[in-house]
Design a protein around this nucleic acid. Structure first.
Lengths: 232, 232
DNA sequence: CGGTGTATTGAACAATTTCAAGGAAAGTGG
DNA sequence: CCACTTTCCTTGAAATTGTTCAATACACCG
């Protein structure tokens, strides 16, 4: 039942692991649920950091602002994921924003409590450290790709990553309704270029698109596009 | 004297903090010093991770390979910095390489010992977690810049960062002999473009170059170049 | 002094962005 | 339900930025 309480996957949800430890009652006093509509901001770049969030249900994007109509989506988050941990660091200010991509429910835990929990529970702290380490590896891989890979390759890689992260429905469509604008922001390019590249991928018979739904038909082809360099 | 033992700055060196804790004798049994010449590899992408390194003296670059003659420098490291922590994660394989930029001495600690130390010492683990968190913030800021900033802006930003990290000598030259190739790899561009942009910066009276030595003359101008977007 | 590697520069080329404009789709108010 | 507004989609073409290629100059090393 404790599982039901938070509704996430015990294995991957740090929140669950946290709550299922000795301090469940303590957590109860420091947590709070929020529900967001599609498009609603959970927190915004430069906001003061007051706590950390865990996603109970729904999907979010974490993004970094650049100019009026430019941003970079740094990460997608789904049920069971942590959001707002990027606010932990020297500053007490979020370096990113988080926006719901569909109706989303999150659990908020205030930072003081969270931090003091970490100081008490070495195991969870270790887990969190490892989580950061993995995120750092991810981030730097994406950074290199951004620097050296062509837009088409980046889009191909992004689609594979989305497929892996969100899975596909019965018809093979990725379980995420991504606007082309968001796809562009995620791959660090413009709307128009993202659009053109998607067309190329469709012509290559690598993907199929129906409205906002994307189906990966030929994963091998996409993978190959992400490895143009293998010709060292 | 314990400080002298490792020769780094107590405040910033996790190694020092580690060693000055209760387990100095234990550390002694698990550490080993290595000295590298300029250009020598400490570890290479895809090597198995067996331990972690702390820099006693010298400077290194941490880089991610792309194709025959392309890479991305992910980070520079100096005395007191940790190297090889990117190997911690799910995989037991380094996602990056580390190369000495000048004669460098490092201290190696085997991973098993390091990890078990972390499990025992909550305070150091917490410190390490925060370190990762900061690195992640850095990485994502650089990622956004790579995606949206022009090459000139990236070079300007890079120079400021190098100045801040390595400081300047009496004449104002940055304490790091960076080849133009490395500057290009750090900013995710080509040798020639990096060269041309440096020329522009010289013409702008923002920097001065004497051989491999770079002096920042007008930091304000460089900062401005890194903020072209502020016209939201 | 020749050789090897890096520095410098120009010019062609390629990738991506920007601008502009027409079309489709979706929401709004009458 | 229709006309209207608005927003997003789609596409072409020009402009820009950055890369690649090629050639020459320079500097250090044995």
């Amino acid at each position: 039942m404790k599982k039901d309480k938070h509704g996430c996957d015990l294995k991957t949800c740090l929140m669950c692991r946290l709550c299922l430890k000795e301090w469940l009652p303590a957590v109860e006093a420091h947590r709070k649920n929020y529900t967001l509509n599609k498009g609603q901001l959970l927190f915004s770049e430069n906001d003061a950091v007051t706590g950390i969030y865990f996603i109970y249900s729904g999907k979010m994007k974490v993004h970094k602002h650049w100019s009026k109509d430019k941003e970079l989506i740094v990460r997608f988050a789904r049920k069971g994921d942590i959001v707002g941990h990027r606010g932990i660091g020297t500053e007490l200010i979020y370096p990113v924003s988080a926006t719901a991509l569909e109706p989303t429910t999150v659990c908020y835990i205030d930072m003081d409590f969270f931090k003091s929990s970490l100081k008490v529970n070495n195991e969870v702290l270790y887990e969190l450290m490892m989580f950061y380490a993995r995120e750092l590896q991810e981030s730097e891989k994406k950074m290199r790709n951004l620097a050296h890979m062509t837009v088409k390759g980046r889009i191909a890689t992004a689609l594979l990553m989305l497929l892996q992260k969100f899975g596909a429905d019965e018809d093979g469509y990725i379980n995420l309704n991504l606007s082309k604008q968001d796809l562009a922001s995620y791959t660090g390019t413009t709307y128009e270029t993202a659009f053109r590249m998607m067309n190329e991928l469709i012509n290559d018979n690598a993907v199929e698109v129906a409205g906002k739904n994307i189906k990966v038909i030929n994963a091998g082809k996409l993978e190959k596009l992400g490895r143009e360099y293998e010709e060292e």
